[in-house]
Design a protein around this nucleic acid. Structure first.
Length: 502
RNA sequence: UGGGGCGUAGCCAAGUUGGUAAGGCAACGGACUUUGACUCCGUCAUUCGUUGGUUCGAGUCCAGCCGCCCCAGCCA
């Protein structure tokens, strides 16, 4: 249903019915927001995007697209001590690769620092925010606990004039990092800790990757996010479950500043996958401590890692469509992801033959020195993908495990005295084999072939019990083959990542 | 009696106003097969955390209980 235009390429993406779409459908019906649907994907540039972000991206962009709306890309860059341009570059690349297009709507929360500062000033003027001198430790004590209410800060009753003066001087850099903060004046006894006079602004004297040293005062997520949404005219602000407790604060900020636009925050459950880890913290740990090659190590669940491993954007989008969207914490079986890539590659990948653990096969009745050119279809399921020519000769390599001198029941491959089909070639029969005297290992298998059974010939339709792949010994090219396993051995790898690495 | 959420099959997940449990993955049968793949067919919840209640009728409404997740960063 939804077609997302992306770099002249059509990216089809359809979200199954889910509770967020239901909300949007209802909003459209009641003409809320004048029928407008505008979402945003707000990554913090402090790490690489992973498959969990892909779920969010597909949701944010997909929901917008299938409701004829728009989706912005906005970097949530309010903490210069954690963010870097390397990350914004990789994020841009990964979203594009996934197939989504933000067109001309690329924004940064740092674009709004000026406006945000003015909003903060207006909050001070209306007595809804104050400068607090409590140290972080003191503030923790005043905050109370989960079951006990907090206490008002002694600075809570400062006058508007004093607050205005102090806040201005905070901006000018007159105070040390951590010396003072700007707090919202809400309710120190709220059961929701986020409402116990949350910090709105703090002093950080670090170069920002975009605003350099223009600021030493940075807004907190809880202040910057709702206002950035409002500034951009976002209608549906979709985020993950852990922000549920922040929603009252999100709404409070918009109300306190009295913005014209009132986006609605909607939370969904983030993606968890078996046999891997998904938290940025843990992924960063693996990268920084050298357990993996980098963010794009093929074992990583990052988009760059999946891409290196051979995943296609189509497969990842398909996966995101299939997993659904809900509010219950869940862990998706990684076999679903694997199913998606197999299904996609099955229809578009060319087949070639390669032997991983070679075992020599000599066809004794095949003329020495003769080389035949055999035609092989590139994809048996799709004739349009054409065919290639394979060289066939007297000496071949087959897979070690495709020969067994003492075959178990139901072994369909090469065994002494039995026949097997060489894929795209002839039917051969094992006449004898040679073993290494030292190791006792079979090192050479001697066969005879039936010239009447050349693949594609009319006389080739004899049934044999199995078909195996092969390469011509003289023509085979050496290749590096990479086999990947899961990142983690255990299905659930929450803790003790190191011991659990595959 | 801190606040906020969630509980439908091994894993995800539909289930608008109560009307008699979609779909996918996995698994298991079987057919087909020039790769034991792919494809195709079939099986897989008398039951929706639990106990009561309302009702002709409850996964859907009400009440109680149980279990799990999130929150005490000047992170996002």
């Amino acid at each position: 249903m939804a077609d997302i235009q992306s770099n002249n390429e059509k990216t089809s993406f359809t979200l199954a019915n889910n509770f967020i779409q239901n909300i949007i459908t209802e909003d459209l019906k009641t003409n809320k927001n004048n029928g407008r649907v505008h979402t945003r994907f707000p990554p913090e540039p402090n790490g690489y995007l992973h498959i969990g972000h892909a779920k969010a991206i597909c949701l944010d962009f997909g929901l917008a697209a299938q409701n004829k709306g728009l989706c912005n890309l906005r970097f949530d860059d309010t903490n210069p001590s954690k963010e870097e341009t390397e990350y914004v570059d990789s994020i841009l690349e990964d979203i594009r690769w996934l197939g989504f297009d933000w067109e001309d709507r690329l924004y940064y929360a740092s674009d709004y620092f000026g406006k945000l500062y003015e909003y903060a000033v207006s909050l001070i003027k209306t007595g809804q925010a104050y400068v607090c001198d409590l140290s972080p430790q003191q503030m923790r004590q005043y905050r109370g606990t989960l079951t006990e209410p907090g206490q008002d800060s002694p600075y809570r009753r400062r006058t508007v004039a004093e607050n205005l003066d102090l806040f201005e001087r905070m901006r000018k850099g007159e105070f040390a990092e951590g010396a003072r903060v700007l707090r919202a004046k809400i309710d120190m006894s709220s059961g929701n800790l986020n409402m116990r006079d949350p910090v709105l602004y703090r002093i950080i004297k670090t170069q920002h990757h975009r605003t350099s040293d223009n600021w030493c005062l940075y807004p907190m997520y809880d202040f910057a996010h709702p206002l950035s949404d409002a500034i951009e005219g976002i209608t549906h602000s979709i985020c993950t479950l852990e922000y549920e407790d922040h929603r009252p604060l999100y709404d409070w900020v918009l109300e306190a500043v009295n913005t014209a636009c009132r986006p609605q925050q909607i939370e969904f459950a983030r993606l968890n996958l078996t046999h891997t880890v998904m938290s940025k913290r843990k992924l960063r740990e693996l990268v920084e401590q050298g357990y993996v090659d980098g963010w794009d190590d093929p074992r990583m669940p990052t988009l760059s890692g999946l891409r290196r491993r051979g995943y296609t954007p189509e497969a990842i989008r398909d996966f995101c469509e299939r997993i659904g969207v809900a509010k219950s914490n869940s862990t998706v079986d990684i076999t679903l992801l694997e199913h998606c890539i197999r299904e996609d590659l099955n229809i578009k990948a060319n087949r070639v033959m390669a032997v991983l653990r070679p075992l020599k096969v000599i066809i004794d009745n095949y003329p020495d020195g003769q080389v035949e050119k055999l035609a092989a279809e590139n994809n048996p399921g799709n004739p349009d993908m054409g065919s290639r020519i394979l060289p066939f000769s007297r000496e071949l390599y087959i897979e070690e495990e495709d020969f067994n001198e003492n075959p178990p029941k139901k072994y369909f491959r090469l065994t002494p005295g039995q026949e097997v089909r060489l894929k795209h070639a002839y039917i051969i029969k094992c006449e004898s084999f040679v073993r290494d005297e030292q190791s006792g290992k079979v090192v050479e298998v001697h066969c005879s072939y039936d010239p009447q059974t050349k693949s594609g010939q009319e006389t080739s339709d004899r049934k044999v019990k199995g078909t195996i792949h092969w390469v011509s010994a003289a023509h085979a090219k050496k290749a590096e083959v990479r086999l990947y396993e899961y990142l983690m051995l255990d299905e659930n790898a929450e803790e003790e990542i190191e011991e659990n690495l595959n």
